[in-house]
Design a binder for these strands. Structure first.
Length: 310
RNA sequence: GCACAGGUGACCGAGUGGUUAAUGGUAGCAGACUGUAAAUCUGCCGCUCUCCGGAGCUACGGAGGUUCGAAUCCUCCCCUGUGCA
């Protein structure tokens, strides 16, 4: 009895994951499970390069627009919801295709997270207040007491990770790295095929530059303005690439062309980080090219059909 | 044409006689990443070789000069900006 197939399509922003996923879903009776930490939010449209409504009518999409702009979705939330969606798709006899650029979300989905507590806003605020009083090293020194092993791995400048480790260690009353020993809760029951898109770096950067510029000409500023008016400037996803720069311009801090080039640069840096993350992902079938390229689409389709017929 | 100001490594920009291959920043490259991850953080970053301790070479517009020693001082030349003509 062979396990149902789960296709995972990964790659940096602007590598053509959407185009490829639409092609594959249509050819192979697939449904798409987005793995994108910003596309989960409604009303974030232009800056997220979500598939269009027309595309979403043609192919069933999941995990897009599942939360309001003022809500917070975490890797844990994503993992649970995505697993549910994948199970349902497989039960329907369709091919689940996970399409993503958010490395942590993908890992949370495939490998799971350690059995730790979710974030605690109250604890975090308290920690940060103390840190403000007692200096920048304070949190890391504290972590050395609560979880020496974690303190060893986490750089003292990496405040968010230090805070999370403290948050876990304090609320569980045991070192976080001890919990890690219990392992993760990986996704089971599927035969996973990972396909990675890896276009030429210069070509990718050019495409990113062009796309980021288009976001502005397609109305990113208006969208950002509306979101701020409705949900306030502190809505978390407004910190995302493109939106952040749009807001800086709306506040009059930078000129429009500066906002555009900052957004382009942010996206380029992000793409590079994604590639670093995905290089560590096991068993990826890397294809060098864009997902919009027919040859790449053909090659991916063949990879999948080879796995479908045992 | 004259008067100022200035030309520094891919870019911006400090340095104004000696621990200077040259502070910072940006870009770029590489890496990390266990519940905000489109976040956050780390390393490398003139060239060549390296037993990774280091060794050699080339560098601050160009050419000369002063000096034990110059990106830093002097002379001439080239170029840029601003002002006056």
């Amino acid at each position: 009895m062979s396990l149902p197939l789960l296709v995972v399509l990964l790659g940096p922003t602007a590598s053509g994951k959407t185009a490829l996923s639409l092609y594959l879903a249509q050819r192979l009776q697939g449904e798409i499970v987005s793995c994108d930490s910003v596309a989960v939010y409604r009303e974030f449209e232009i800056g997220t390069a979500k598939p269009s409504l027309e595309e979403r009518r043609r192919v069933q999409h999941h995990l897009i627009d599942i939360a309001g702009p003022a809500e917070v979705i975490t890797a844990g939330d994503y993992s649970r919801l995505a697993r549910q969606a994948i199970g349902e798709i497989a039960a329907r006899g369709h091919l689940p295709i996970v399409v993503g650029g958010s490395g942590l979300y993908l890992r949370a989905l495939l490998d799971g997270l350690f059995p730790g507590p979710p974030r605690s806003e109250a604890l975090r605020t308290r920690l940060r207040e103390r840190a403000a009083e007692r200096g920048p090293d304070y949190l890391h020194r504290l972590l050395r007491r609560f979880d020496p092993a974690a303190a060893q791995t986490i750089h003292f400048n990496d405040v968010p990770k230090v805070v999370r480790a403290l948050e876990v260690s304090i609320s569980v009353r045991a070192p976080m790295t001890g919990l890690w020993q219990q392992g993760r809760n990986p996704l089971t029951g599927f035969n996973i095929l990972r396909i990675g898109l890896n276009p030429d770096r210069d070509a990718l950067y050019q495409r990113i530059n062009q796309r980021a510029r288009e976001m502005f000409s397609f109305g990113l500023l208006d969208e950002a303005r509306t979101l701020v008016a409705r949900y306030g400037a502190s809505a978390w996803p407004l910190n995302s690439l493109g939106y952040k720069q749009a807001l800086q311009h709306l506040r009059g801090e930078i000129a429009l062309d500066q906002a555009i080039s900052a957004a382009q640069q942010g996206h380029r840096n992000y793409a590079k980080r994604q590639l670093t993350w995905f290089r560590r992902e096991p068993d990826v079938h890397w294809i060098s090219g864009f997902g919009s390229d027919p040859a790449v689409q053909k090659e991916s389709e063949e990879l999948i059909t080879a796995r479908l017929q045992p």
